[in-house]
Design a protein around this nucleic acid. Sequence first.
DNA 1: TCAAAAGTGTTAGATTTACACCCATGA
DNA 2: TCATGGGTGTAAATCTAACACTTTTGA
Lengths: 225, 225
Amino acid sequence: MTTYYHEYSKVLVSVDCIIFGFDEGELRVLIGKRKLDPGRGQWSLYGGFVRNNESVDNAAGRVLYELTGLRNLYMRQVGAFGNVDRDPGERVISIVYYALINVKDYEKAQQELYDAQWVNINELPQLYSDHKEMVKKARRMMQDKISRELISFRLLPKLFTLTQLQRLYEAVNGEEVDKRNFRKRIKEMDFIEKTALIDKTSSKRGAYLYQFNKNTYNEDPNFKL
Amino acid sequence: MTTYYHEYSKVLVSVDCIIFGFDEGELRVLIGKRKLDPGRGQWSLYGGFVRNNESVDNAAGRVLYELTGLRNLYMRQVGAFGNVDRDPGERVISIVYYALINVKDYEKAQQELYDAQWVNINELPQLYSDHKEMVKKARRMMQDKISRELISFRLLPKLFTLTQLQRLYEAVNGEEVDKRNFRKRIKEMDFIEKTALIDKTSSKRGAYLYQFNKNTYNEDPNFKL
DNA sequence: TCAAAAGTGTTAGATTTACACCCATGA
DNA sequence: TCATGGGTGTAAATCTAACACTTTTGA
């Protein structure tokens, strides 16, 4: 082992993940009860320590995989939280990520295994340490991102109705929008394609199902959901 | 010392700073030749290791102070860079910040002490490790921020001309804008105040000097420079 | 007197917002 | 038959972008 920087002290580094899901018209976050001391039993984000042989991004990917059983989730870094006393146990610098998942891809079994709960982002209980702050920052960054890049499909099933898409948009931004104006904008986006299929789960008449076409979406420079 | 997490391994954490300045119509970054091995002599950002008794933010503030002699600089976190092999010496996770400084506040003596150089952001030489990537990301974040929040005054002298402000705007965004349209927008911003003073350094006729008034600017929700 | 930067308005086009009714269906 | 969610267009208002000439003054 090299020792270039031997005079400097090392510190524990963890990753914490805000897992966003969209269900029943609500933007939700996956949280659980903390399973180790200190703070055992408190509501908390899912996290883990960064290992020697993995990048920080990979550590986050691993934690997400362990929890959800899903690989290659859409995931972005929120930033580092580094106050000296942020963790009551010992000094830990935490690097925070958010991930977007389609709740239907996430198995019940997996959820029960970790005793994970989906909670409406506006109704979060108290969370361990500075996790609430992390969620706040993640939400802001996700809002920003979702309006600039085509990522909403990560939160939706392959096929979705325009009403679902609108509700997602509203849940993310925390404000309602006009149906006609919303649909007018969507109609101009070639990468949101109407299929011939009809969904009847939420109305008697039924609503057309749409899908994203990532090929048609070539980093459209004017994209703005 | 508590030992809650004794089974997990620790790692070196550093901070690296992108210091932005604006001079002669150019957006510039402060870099220097690396003074320690490995990589001694290569162009590099300024950085330092996070100590046990300081938050990560404070570590960045300290590094900035050591280098520039200035306290309470405007500073924002860019994010964590955590690839396993990013530093050729030993594993180091780096947390990156950018800072904005008014080049006139930065003393020559201080600059010579650290052998620091202002370099046009579009003409950077090769930089140590992943520092070039850090600059790229910092620039994108700064662009975003400067158009949403009143921070440009951190890069300008107290008094400035509208042409200077426009050049700053153009240097940050990398594209020219129409003078009349720009000035029209500025005129609507109450927190940019015309003074009675005239600056004659850049033209025979002279240009009015303006100043920012932070009091008038109450987090204007519609701000968009 | 002239070169160089400062300063100043108008208009066409594009974008955004507000707004209300009919449709299809299963219960 | 009726309650429920799905679907559709137009007009006014606002915002954005393009564009050119006059002023001042030191060299």
